[in-house]
Structures are given as C-alpha cells and as structure tokens.
C-alpha cells in the first residue's frame, strides 16, 4: 500500500500547483468568456450559472471593426518575427558559430543570449533610447549628421521595425541554443564522410546537417509560434498598440487591454477572456498543423530491422 502511495505523494506538490494555478484558471477563463463579467457587475453577476452564459462576446469579437486589423497585425508580427529571427536568424547564428573556432562561437552565443536574461523593462528602455528623437535618440544622433531621416521619434515613424527587432533579438537566442547543440551533436563521421564524398561546406550543411535538424526545427517553430502568439509585454512597453489607433495592437495585447486595463472606464473580464480563448484555439490548431506538416509520426518511428 505504502509503495503504491509513494508516487502520488511525490507528485502531489506539483499536482496541487498545476491544478490551482493552471487547470482551475483555464476552466474559469473558459467559463468567463461566455459571460459579461466586468468591474461594474463583479460580485453581483452569478458568472458560474449557465443562465448567464451566451455567445455574445464571441459575436462581438468577430464583428469588431478592428478585428481584421488586429488579426492582420498578429499574423504579420508572428510570421515575420518567427521566420526572419526566431528560426531564420537562429539557424544562421547556430550554423556560423558552430563552423568557426569553438571558443569564439561559444563567446558569441553567450553575448547574444544576454538580452534574454535582461529584465524586459530595462531591455525595452534600451530600445527606446535607440529610437528616441534627435538629439537624444542614439540612431537619430548618428543618422542626423549624415543627413538621413527626419530626426523624429522612430517608434512613431517605424513602430513595426522596432517591435520585430526587439522581439527577434531575444527570440533568436532560443533557437540558436537548440540548433547549435543539435549541430554539435551530429556525429563527426557524417561530416567527414560528406567531405570525402566530395561535398563543400555548404553542401554538407544542406544535405547532411539540415536534415539532422528536423526535430529541433519542428520544436522551435511550434514553440516559438505559440510563444509569439501569446507574447505582448515588449509591444505593450514599446508602443502599447500605438502610435495610431490599433496600429500595432496584436491579439494577446487586445485580450490584455480588454480584460485588465480600464481604457473605457471598466475592465471587461468576460470579453477579454473570450479573446484569450480564441487565441488558445488558434494556437492548438497551429500546433496540430505543424505536427502534420513535419510528419511528426515518421520522426518517432521505430526502426524496421528484419534480418541480421
């Protein structure tokens, strides 16, 4: 009996934490998304009662006149940051730093990793200092004397460039670490064999190394898609969806704005929850598509040795 109980005893702390802070809130958000709970009716509305549930929030989302703007912003933000930085640049850095002197490569990766461990507010303040208007902004004070640019606040003139750069610089370090360790784990014999077979370095990368990165590529792409879909802190701190109306507002930021800021004098918890639920569904659909596209089943298939 004691032996059977032991696993549950060891699991219980985590089970309690995950239940309290993940599963219960998840269910609550899902229920809330069908109610119109907000600051004004808090304590009055019986949000747990099915009588108060409706699809109104979801209708509101899809009929919102900024719906297409927000969806478009989200797609552009996720696709550009993911392809150019989180996967693309990560792969390029990983390949370069694993094909140069080992120590130099390692040092470069350590440097590139620094923004990830810098507090996000400090990190965004640095970008704001870069983007500031002339004569304070670093970029403007360099470009100004050269006669380039208008000297205006760059977050107002080119907000997307800064949002994608600020996110991409951090985002790339995740894939960089995974890809470079995966590249270094490729048996050296494959690389030697490829060279002896007559391949150039580029051909070896193309035909031998990249195929070996299929699994980390799938993982980084999936993980970073979900991560980018739900990330809004950098955007909130940089532009807070501005400078124009909804100009850089993405889905996750909308959910935050609706649910937790009193832009219109109240915080619409139910409506915000509905935005979040749709985002979660989008995330799940994306993950399933990735697994299909990358043929996850084949990646984990058992070998079929039938004779020795």
């Amino acid at each position: 009996m004691r032996g059977q109980l032991a696993p549950y005893v060891f699991l219980s702390p985590t089970l309690v934490l995950v239940t309290l802070f993940f599963f219960i809130p998840l269910v609550m958000v899902f229920i809330l998304s069908f109610t119109n709970l907000d600051m004004t009716n808090f304590g009055i509305l019986e949000w747990w009662s099915p009588a108060n549930w409706s699809l109104d929030n979801y209708i509101k989302i899809f009929t919102n006149r900024f719906f297409s703007k927000i969806l478009g912003n989200t797609i552009m933000y996720v696709v550009l940051t993911l392809t150019v930085f989180n996967v693309g640049l990560a792969l390029v850095i990983a390949l370069i730093t694993t094909h140069i002197n080992r120590r130099a490569g390692f040092a470069f990766r350590v440097l590139w990793f620094l923004p990830r461990i810098t507090p996000v507010v400090v990190y965004i303040m640095m970008w704001k200092a870069l983007a500031g208007p002339a004569p304070m902004g670093i970029i403007n004070s360099i470009l100004g004397p050269l006669g380039i640019g208008s000297g205006k606040y760059l977050l107002n003139t080119n907000p997307w460039v800064f949002i994608i750069l600020a996110n991409g610089f951090i985002g790339a370090s995740f894939g960089m670490i995974l890809f470079s360790s995966a590249i270094e784990a490729i048996p050296k014999d494959y690389l030697m064999a490829s060279k002896v077979d007559g391949a150039t370095t580029w051909q070896t990368i193309r035909y031998v190394e990249l195929p070996a990165l299929k699994w980390p590529l799938l993982f980084v792409t999936t993980y970073q898609t979900l991560s980018l879909l739900t990330s809004f802190q950098q955007i909130m701190l940089l532009t807070d969806g501005g400078p124009g109306l909804y100009q850089t507002e993405v889905w996750a930021l909308t959910a935050y704005h609706r649910a937790l800021t009193s832009y219109f004098g109240n915080t619409q918890w139910g409506y915000g929850a509905a935005w979040s639920v749709v985002l979660v569904i989008i995330g799940i659909v994306m993950a399933v598509i990735y697994l299909r596209v990358f043929k996850f089943g084949e990646l984990v298939e058992e070998p079929k040795i039938d004779q020795l």
Binding site: M192, A193, S194, K195, V196, G198, A199, Y207, A212, K214
Partner: peptide, 27 residues
C-alpha cells in the same frame, strides 16, 4: 578532400541516416 578523388569507409559506416541506400550511394 573533394579534389583528391578518394573513397573512404568508416568504422561507424557513417551512412546518412535520413537518406535511403540509393541516396547514400548516389551522394
């Protein structure tokens, strides 16, 4: 190595795991 016209057999065989026998030999 490319300019030397050599063939080499490794202890581990070093067959590219993602390629079929045909792709390995034709590489």
């Amino acid at each position: 190595p490319k300019e030397r016209n050599i063939g080499m057999v490794f202890q581990s065989y070093a067959l590219y795991p993602h390629m079929t026998t045909f792709d390995n030999i034709s590489y």
